[in-house]
């Protein structure tokens, strides 16, 4: 077990980020990567069922009729930028700047809320156009896949608010930096999932409509 030996020396180096300085911190972060692996399996099943149900519209609207390039791009760039600003927050954290960390986390939070707002607007729009969870097998697959991602974003926003509160109360410690780092992994992961939703759901849906 290399974990056992890893506390000797190299992790006490002054340039080791705080969140990696304790054994617990390192194992928590590794554990979170394992959780993300499970999340990948979860989303893979949802992508698989969505892709199999493409074309099963049951007289309901088709995605080509409802998807719009502009709305999808706004959502994509909001989430992509929030992933970038979340990375900047970690960068600030590692420069020991509590203020920089909180500012960039706050911006990430706002971009995440913007994304969520656009997504809710999009869902309401689709339901008004006659495409809801129960309209057809296709739209069930769509709402379950994209909705599960949206639920994860909502959860991420709540998580980030709680972490900002803790940062204000406790400052930068081995515990708080580890919590921020784990939350940042979660947030980047949500953008990774969105890249595939953008590709497999929206882009593919619009390509079929064009073609």
């Amino acid at each position: 077990m290399e974990y056992v030996h890893s506390d000797n020396g190299k992790h006490d180096a002054p340039d080791t980020p705080l969140e990696y300085q304790s054994e617990t911190g390192r194992l928590n972060i590794l554990g979170f990567w394992v959780f993300l692996g499970a999340e990948i399996a979860l989303f893979a099943t949802l992508f698989a069922s969505y892709l199999v149900l493409v074309g099963r519209y049951a007289d309901g609207p088709t995605p080509g009729e409802l998807f719009e390039v502009k709305g999808v791009l706004i959502e994509t760039f909001l989430l992509l930028t929030s992933s970038f600003t979340c990375g900047l927050a970690i960068h600030e954290m590692r420069r020991n700047s509590l203020k920089g960390l909180i500012v960039w986390l706050g911006i990430t939070l706002l971009l995440g809320l913007g994304f969520l707002g656009f997504e809710i607007y999009e869902f309401v729009h689709y339901i008004h156009e006659g495409a809801s969870l129960t309209t057809s097998a296709y739209w069930s697959g769509f709402f379950v896949l994209v909705g599960t991602h949206g639920a994860h974003v909502t959860m991420g926003i709540a998580w980030m608010i709680l972490i900002i509160i803790q940062l204000v109360q406790r400052g930068l410690t081995k515990q708080t930096t580890r919590k921020v780092f784990v939350a940042s992994l979660y947030w980047h992961f949500l953008d990774v999932v969105w890249i595939f939703i953008f590709t497999a759901v929206y882009l593919y849906g619009m390509v079929m409509h064009h073609g």
């Binding site: 290399e2 974990y3 390192r26 990567w33 692996g37 499970a38 990948i40 399996a41 893979a44 992508f47």
Partner: peptide, 29 residues
């Protein structure tokens, strides 16, 4: 570039987990 997957002394394990789950995802889909 954003998630620093290869960082820390567990970088190898973290990378293995991701490769493994990508493999699972590809087989599933």
């Amino acid at each position: 570039m954003f998630m620093h997957m290869t960082e820390s002394s567990n970088g190898k394990h973290q990378t293995h987990v991701m490769i493994h789950s990508a493999f699972i995802a590809v087989i599933l889909v």
